[in-house]
């Protein structure tokens, strides 16, 4: 029915899950790179140095305004043409997603730091906490609580956006789906519907779990 049966033919299911694995691998590596970089950049953005702040602001706007697809093309094709780098699609994707993730993460960290009222610092100072103790016991715990749900949402967006990397030749879940549909064009002309529906279900399963976790944590710590 609707071409769903195609998924269970031969190694199709394994291949689709493998594609999903590739997509998740790219996003998880990018997340692992972008979170620490984002935290450092965010702390700098909330800091006092106006030059650093301006540079980071431009970086953030650049990454945000540029469609991710254009960034992917820029890194994958552009670097080959200009510097002769032979980056694989996967490496290009990890670079682009790390740049993007670090930028978004830095904005979340900046927001979380700025959201801590001045009075929290003054109360801490009045109780005799040193600036370092204030950060350890008061600022960081509050920021982390604010950041975890927001970062999970960011990760969800990154997982979804990996569907673009098929455009630079990475065989992820959507690309596998296309290949399966192509191969079964004659035997199952409706396969497009069933296979894409299945891809939808895969993305949904991953992102839904993440977004539920985010909501739970948000509720717990609000």
């Amino acid at each position: 029915m609707w071409g769903i049966e195609v998924i269970f033919k031969g190694k199709n299911l394994i291949r689709l899950l493998g594609g999903l694995g590739t997509a998740l691998e790219i996003s998880l590596i990018a997340v692992a790179i972008s979170i620490p970089i984002g935290i450092i950049l965010g702390i700098l953005m909330a800091g006092r140095n106006p030059v650093i702040k301006a540079i980071l602001r431009v970086y953030l706007d650049f990454v945000r305004i540029m469609p991710q697809l254009v960034l992917l093309f820029l890194v994958f094709f552009g670097t080959t043409k200009v510097w002769g780098w032979d980056l694989s699609g996967e490496v290009s994707a990890v670079i682009v997603f790390s740049m993007w993730g670090a930028a978004e993460m830095s904005d979340l960290v900046r927001g979380a730091l700025n959201a801590i009222p001045q009075h929290q610092y003054e109360s801490a100072q009045s109780l005799g906490f040193t600036p370092l103790q204030t950060k350890i016991y008061i600022v960081i715990p509050q920021c982390v609580r604010r950041l975890i749900p927001l970062s999970i949402n960011l990760i969800t967006r990154m997982v979804k956006t990996t569907s673009l990397v098929l455009m630079i030749g990475v065989v992820e879940v959507l690309k596998v789906a296309q290949q399966i549909i192509e191969a079964n064009r004659m035997s199952a002309p409706n396969a497009a519907f069933g296979v894409y529906l299945f891809v939808f279900a895969l993305y949904f399963a991953v992102c839904f779990v993440l977004s539920i976790a985010a909501r739970k944590l948000e509720k717990k710590w609000s």
Partner: peptide, 20 residues
């Protein structure tokens, strides 16, 4: 300007307990 004297304690208008 910064260093707090432990002989003084202060309570503020906006209480500012640590929310976490």
């Amino acid at each position: 300007g910064g260093k707090h004297n432990s002989k003084v304690g202060m309570v503020f208008q906006s209480y500012d307990l640590f929310p976490h």
